[in-house]
């Protein structure tokens, strides 16, 4: 009686196992690499209706973040300025520039400029700006070096791990409250090593790791 199966079929189970192993590894690696805000969110740089440059306004001119985002110390939400805030200067500076047409129109009509929101946590996350900036967490920590960006892009993942890493060990990220909006200021250059630990104790920083701290 002749062989029903050819000789190579002896190797078949081994090949199938190797094949499944490869596919499985690739799938896990792919999910690990891609299914995270580090991939999905970081780098998002939408086209804005007006090409506003933070680099020019903050780094070059020296405006404080709070000049425009004036409610950040009092509200959970960091407000986008109204067009009339822009017009405080742009009624004179570049006052006929075509790039600012949308601002002038908005200031005249009261219809907001449709800015595109870049940083957005899921709707079931309740992030409070004021509690962070009032306790020495700088803007730069979550938003990256906005002061150097011509167009804002999403620099940090803002994933749950991102929040928890800091909530588990807030001390290294604390800085004096008056330096919170000074994005170019490097705390590691200016503060003694144990400053953060001391501030954490003095200010009674108790970064909650409870689910209900953010998910309410």
């Amino acid at each position: 009686m002749a062989n029903i199966f050819p000789r190579w079929s002896n190797r078949l189970p081994l090949l199938v196992i190797i094949g499944l192993f490869l596919v499985g590894t690739a799938a896990i690696a792919g999910i690990w690499y891609y299914f995270t805000p580090k991939y999905t969110r970081v780098g998002y740089q939408p086209v804005q209706p007006v090409p506003f440059s933070h680099a020019v306004h903050v780094d070059q001119i020296g405006l404080d973040c709070r000049y425009c985002h004036s409610a950040v110390e009092k509200s959970w939400y960091s407000n986008i300025p109204t067009a009339s805030t822009c017009m405080n200067c742009h009624n004179q500076v570049l006052k006929d520039d075509p790039r600012l047409a949308a601002i002038r129109e908005s200031a005249a009509t009261g219809i907001p400029v449709p800015w595109v929101q870049v940083h957005k946590v899921p709707d079931y996350v309740y992030f409070n700006h004021s509690v962070h900036v009032n306790r020495g967490i700088s803007c730069v920590h979550c938003h990256g070096e906005i002061n150097k960006m011509d167009e804002v892009y999403h620099a940090k993942p803002l994933s749950m791990t991102f929040c928890l890493d800091c909530h588990r060990n807030p001390a290294p990220n604390l800085r004096p409250p008056e330096k919170v909006t000074d994005l170019a200021w490097n705390p590691h250059q200016h503060l003694p090593k144990d400053w953060g630990e001391k501030a954490k104790k003095d200010w009674k920083v108790n970064a909650s790791q409870n689910c209900s701290a953010c998910h309410r």
Binding site: T40, V42, G43, Y44
Partner: peptide, 26 residues
């Protein structure tokens, strides 16, 4: 790769309740 600049809105892999029909400011 991670961190590439992109003009497209971020992908929400498991969108479950990421966006709710509630009003957010502005």
């Amino acid at each position: 790769k991670r961190g590439d600049i992109s003009r497209r809105p971020p992908l929400e892999v498991f969108p479950d309740m990421d966006r709710m029909p509630k009003l957010r400011p502005q």
